[in-house]
């Protein structure tokens, strides 16, 4: 009985995906989009600057503080 429920849920999703019409095209677009976003853009073009360049929170804080306190005059 307990095992029946997950199997029913699985079948619900399986049948749902099988019966899709326009949904199939949409899923293709979603998957291509996610691959481009996470597999290309995020890795190669959008690294997290602070995580990539500094290994500890203290270093990250020091960097930001340095940026924020270096120029108090009209240097921008």
């Amino acid at each position: 009985m307990l095992m029946e429920y997950p199997a029913r849920v699985f079948k619900f999703y399986q049948d749902g995906f099988r019966r899709m019409t326009v949904g199939k095209t949409l899923w293709k677009i979603i998957i291509i989009k996610l691959i481009i976003m996470f597999g290309v853009l995020k890795i190669f073009f959008f690294p997290n600057f602070l995580s990539t360049n500094f290994s500890t929170d203290q270093q990250r804080a020091d960097h930001v503080i340095e940026q924020l306190t270096r120029s108090t005059g009209n240097n921008y």
Partner: peptide, 28 residues
């Protein structure tokens, strides 16, 4: 559903930009 599928995750790109272009802000 069509609108949702095309629009989904476009907001995540903003979070990418926060980490790369707006790191002082993101940290703060």
């Amino acid at each position: 559903g069509i609108n949702f599928a095309i629009g989904v995750a476009t907001g995540i790109i903003l979070e990418f930009q926060f980490g790369t272009n707006w790191s002082n802000y993101s940290w703060m």
